[in-house]
């Protein structure tokens, strides 16, 4: 699924409007976790990460794990410094008022699967 379409379907708020997302950017995997050690070890490459963890390390860990985009759940919004780091790394960030559970459920309905799915 195209990342742009996914963001629109879930009514996500884009935190990194400065990033031009390529039309061809597609995602088929997802991962939900707040433990960045788990993200490093288990997030599938090219996946969407759903988390309430807003620490700066999210960006470095997501890049290292090859995560395509991060959705902050439950209305969490990271500091501006984190957003700027993501922009400089070209990592699109979104936020949603909905919970991790509900966001993951919607992503699943749209056809995304976890690492073992």
């Amino acid at each position: 699924m195209k990342l742009n379409d996914l963001a629109e379907k879930l009514s996500l708020r884009n935190l990194t409007l400065e990033i031009q997302i390529k039309e061809s950017t597609c995602v088929s995997k997802g991962h939900a976790s707040d433990l960045l050690s788990d993200v490093l070890a288990n997030a599938p490459g090219g996946s969407v990460l759903v988390t309430i963890q807003v620490h700066m390390n999210v960006i470095a860990v997501a890049i290292h794990a090859g995560v395509a985009s991060v959705i902050f759940a439950s209305g969490m919004v990271p500091d501006q410094a984190v957003i700027e780091k993501a922009i400089s790394e070209g990592l699109p960030l979104y936020t949603s008022k909905e919970s991790t559970f509900d966001i993951a459920g919607q992503l699943y309905e749209l056809g995304l699967r976890g690492g073992h799915g």
């Binding site: 700066m56 470095a60 860990v61």
Partner: peptide, 16 residues
């Protein structure tokens, strides 16, 4: 430890 440590929660010790 696998829980409540800087590494488990944040993946690495933050630079700052």
């Amino acid at each position: 430890r696998p829980s409540f440590s800087v590494i488990s929660q944040l993946g690495m010790i933050p630079d700052d």
